[in-house]
Write a protein that binds this DNA or RNA. Structure first.
Length: 595
RNA sequence: GGGGCCGUAGCUCAGUUUGGUUAGAGCACUCGACUGUCACUCGAGAGGUCGCGGGUUCGAGCCCCGUCGGCCCCGCCA
């Protein structure tokens, strides 16, 4: 954006974009006083706007009394109008840390446009000075947002948004908005509910995602749709989870999994490029089963090895009680080999065991090879020569979990991640993208034993597994895919069911009877009966992508006005109580928690 | 719903282990000095509900109980 375009009645240029080429020019600038240095007869101050900082100097002996008075009483964060001339700085007075450091503006006019109280949290921070507490940063967000770091993040967010629009528009997608006041959904995350004034006792829900609407748009023939959609989920927060968040929501008709993945890769490539990074030309794919087998998780971090291996055979026949019990019970013994791990102390390995136990494992078996010999509680129970099949080289440590896969996989996943972090095996400059495919259609609710959709109930089964749906539903694979980067899920999607008969079968399997399906998803079933093209799509977690590309550690640093971990907005103080009359009008009653 | 950490001057923190005189420091702020600074420098000064409530004690920033707020994690997030 050129300065000419940003010139206004008040200003001719932006502070941060002045350069040597402007030397001699008369300029008018508006901005915030970043920091002032009053030397007595000479006052310097740094003036800040969205483009950056520029130094302004005021020679009090030559200034008018009015200008001199303002210059010697400048408080931080005051908004001022500066008139002056851009001048080259003397050689020795240049500041290499500023992009405007070779010049300064010699002020002839200086006026306060917006007086400012001393900021309650500092905007200008000294080198090495701590950031104010996050609570205060959120409470006084307009001050925190003035900081260069947050401005950079939000500008990047803007650019990524425009890149998304540009790329998808170019690819033939239409940006179409869907309602924010929608129908509550009984499963999935908890809904944010909005009471209806006109319909006593009835509620809207804020959308958890525009899922059904985008399918309706496909039925309606729009063929390719996208939306940068705000979504809401009333669940507890995390550093990477906000109650209201933004998805890049994409859906297309007459597509296969490959088509959606190709489009998604193109978008990802465009986004990463906009942020100055590259995505490999081909993104590898890995089946869900393989991901769980080798990494213990469906979103593996492939920046490092430490793969999980099945060592059941090595332990089979051993009288070691832990492994024997697991193997006899139909479980397995799986583990990871840590090259050079024999140097880990007893205490360190105990801490890894705590991690494994935290994930549900009963314990963490350890065997190390030192000076050729195997050492560890289970080692002496191994049959002659069996230990060699553990694949441990001298100095290695093997860590094993015995038991059923649903215990050992998550436990080994966490151990693997912990080891990688502690032993600094995670390269900082590698982007390991992977598509995880062939998710199962269903999983069992551990409490009730009932089938639940892994993805969502509109996900299409793999055509070759259609016959398994009723007989062995847990073996049926879905046409679903997740894009994973460095162990983080960037987005996920699926081919949807476009045959109403298949949709009914899935509902039945999920224990949703005809009447309930009709009342909950009737409008979708009806639409599918009206002639639905094969369609599918994907949704990306936009905030999370911005966070990664900005190098931020919290979603709050890439959202202008985020909520706290208790889902409060500290600046405006939401949520808040409302007048009793407003509540009465909505036909609802508030009960005290301790009534 | 559960676990952990944190809350002392406007801001960042020390002081809490072992209760004891008037609660400190740096930055910011106010006043004064200073014409080449860029985290300006120098001198002086002002600034405190130790988150809040209750308890123990002759005495509580410090110990105990409760509560509010923030952050991190588990559960939860089709």
């Amino acid at each position: 954006m050129s300065d000419t375009a940003l010139a206004t009645t008040f200003r001719t240029h932006l502070c941060g974009s002045l350069r040597d080429e402007h030397v001699g020019a008369s300029v008018r600038l508006g901005g915030w006083v970043h920091r002032a240095r009053d030397l007595g007869g000479l006052v310097f101050f740094d003036l800040r706007d969205r483009a950056g900082l520029v130094q302004v100097s005021v020679d009090l002996s030559r200034a008018t009394p009015e200008v001199a008075a303002v210059a010697s009483s400048l408080g931080a964060e005051t908004v001022v109008l500066v008139e002056g001339t851009v001048a080259q700085r003397p050689e020795a007075m240049r500041n290499a840390e500023l992009s405007t450091g070779t010049i300064e503006v010699k002020a002839t006019g200086l006026r306060v446009l917006g007086p400012a109280e001393t900021p309650v949290i500092p905007v200008a921070r000294g080198k090495g000075e701590q950031l104010a507490a996050e609570e205060l940063r959120l409470r006084h967000r307009y001050l925190d947002l003035r900081r260069d770091e947050l401005q950079r993040n939000l500008v990047l967010r803007h650019r990524l948004m425009q890149t998304t629009r540009g790329f998808l528009t170019e690819a033939g997608f239409f940006e179409i908005e869907t309602p924010m006041l929608t129908k509550p959904t009984p499963e999935g995350a908890r809904d944010y509910l909005v009471p209806s004034r006109v319909h006593p006792g009835e509620f809207y829900a804020l959308p958890q995602s525009p899922q059904i609407y985008k399918q309706l748009l496909m039925v309606a023939g729009y063929d390719r749709y996208f939306q940068i959609a705000r979504c809401f989920r009333d669940e507890d927060l995390r550093a990477d989870r906000q109650p209201e968040f933004t998805q890049i929501d994409v859906e297309a008709s007459f597509v296969s999994e490959d088509d959606v993945m190709r489009i998604a890769e193109g978008l990802t490539r465009a986004l990463w490029r906009e942020a100055g990074s590259e995505v490999p030309t081909t993104i590898r794919r890995m089946g869900y089963a393989e991901a769980l087998e080798r990494y213990g998780i469906d979103r593996p971090d492939l920046r490092y090895g430490l793969e999980i291996a099945d060592l059941s055979d090595v332990f089979r026949g051993s009288e070691f009680v832990v492994t024997k019990k697991a193997l006899d019970g139909g479980g397995r013994v799986r583990g990871i080999r840590i090259p050079g791990g024999a140097t880990l102390s007893r205490k360190q390995v105990d801490e890894l065991e705590t991690v494994a136990k935290g994930a549900g494992a009963l314990g963490l078996l350890r065997i190390k090879r030192q000076n050729g010999a195997l050492d560890g509680p289970a080692a002496k129970f191994l049959a002659e020569g069996a230990g060699d099949r553990l694949g441990l080289s001298d100095g290695d440590l093997g860590l094993y979990v015995a038991g059923p896969d649903h215990i050992s996989s998550p436990a080994l996943d966490r151990v693997r991640q912990e080891v990688a972090q502690r032993m600094q095996l995670v390269p900082s400059d590698v982007n390991a993208f992977v598509w995880v495919t062939d998710f199962p259609m269903f999983e069992r609710d551990p409490a009730t034993g009932a089938l639940a959709a892994v993805h969502h109930p509109f996900t299409a089964p793999n055509p070759s597994d259609l016959d398994l749906l009723e007989s062995e539903p847990w073996r049926a694979r879905a046409q679903a895919y997740d894009l994973v980067l460095n162990g983080t899920e960037l987005g996920g999607g699926s081919i949807r069911i476009n045959d109403p008969r298949v949709q009914s079968r899935i509902f039945r399997l999920l224990g949703i009877d005809e009447a309930s399906a009709q009342s909950r998803f009737g409008f979708l079933l009806e639409a599918l009966r009206a002639g639905a093209p094969p369609h599918g799509g994907i949704a990306f977690g936009f905030d999370r992508i911005v966070m990664m590309l900005a190098g931020a550690t919290s979603l709050r640093d890439v959202i202008a006005f985020p909520k706290t971990t208790a889902a409060r907005a500290l600046f405006e103080g939401a949520p808040s109580a409302v007048p009793a009359s407003d509540i009465a009008e909505l036909h609802i009653r508030v009960e005290s928690e301790h009534a």
